[in-house]
Design a protein around this nucleic acid. Structure first.
Lengths: 101, 101
DNA sequence: TCGCGGTATCACGACAACGTTATACTAAAC
DNA sequence: GTTTAGTATAACGTTGTCGTGATACCGCGA
């Protein structure tokens, strides 16, 4: 429960999700991710480091470039599952509102 | 992506997961959750409020007690999916270590 | 060897979330 | 109507995370 919370935290930042989203298409170097997301280079580097430490993404230096890629695409399944569940929760929020009005 | 991150944030706190875990067995009032988790009453109240606003949990006053219950048990499926993916990531962390040593 | 593009890190300020203590609210019992 | 158990909220200090700007590092080509 401790570790699970920490794992969820990895996906709880919009910019980090944007970085992941960019890597959905495959392997990209840092600059490519920067361009795909519109985030600053320093910020992208930080998020990529976090994702690497989390074991979600792999770092592969190639010459002077550094490529990153999602290791196990099961994370995208996780994202999809969460998004689906989010829809359910949204509906419940509406129901709760309706019960009040 | 914005909203999805926010949704992940709901599950990114150990104590909140503990509260959810307690509600796995069904409907409980606040005091029961407090006893099940060992958290302070004020803290449990806060987390329950958050979970309610998030549309994950439903509040049902009954007399002077207030019962809470998970609305859609699909969240537990989400937790299970995340836990499974966590295992994968853990393995990748080990692999990364091994590549260094 | 020097310069340069690409990447990583540092130091910092801003801000949000957590947990606690104390207190307010509410409904039932007396 | 007062008390009491259960629940919610307020105020506060602490801590962690985010994003930025500046700078360091690294590999390569001139």
């Amino acid at each position: 429960m401790e570790a699970l919370a920490e794992y969820f935290k990895v996906f709880s930042e919009p910019n980090r999700l944007a970085v992941l989203e960019a890597l959905h298409q495959g392997s990209l170097n840092v600059t490519a991710v920067v361009e795909a997301t519109g985030l600053s280079q320093a910020l992208v580097s930080k998020h990529l480091k976090l994702l690497t430490i989390a074991g979600v993404v792999r770092r592969r230096p190639e010459g002077s470039l550094v490529y990153y890629e999602v290791i196990d695409r099961g994370v995208f399944r996780l994202l999809a599952t969460a998004e689906k569940q989010l829809q359910v929760s949204r509906q419940q929020q509406l129901n709760a509102l309706q019960a009040v009005l």
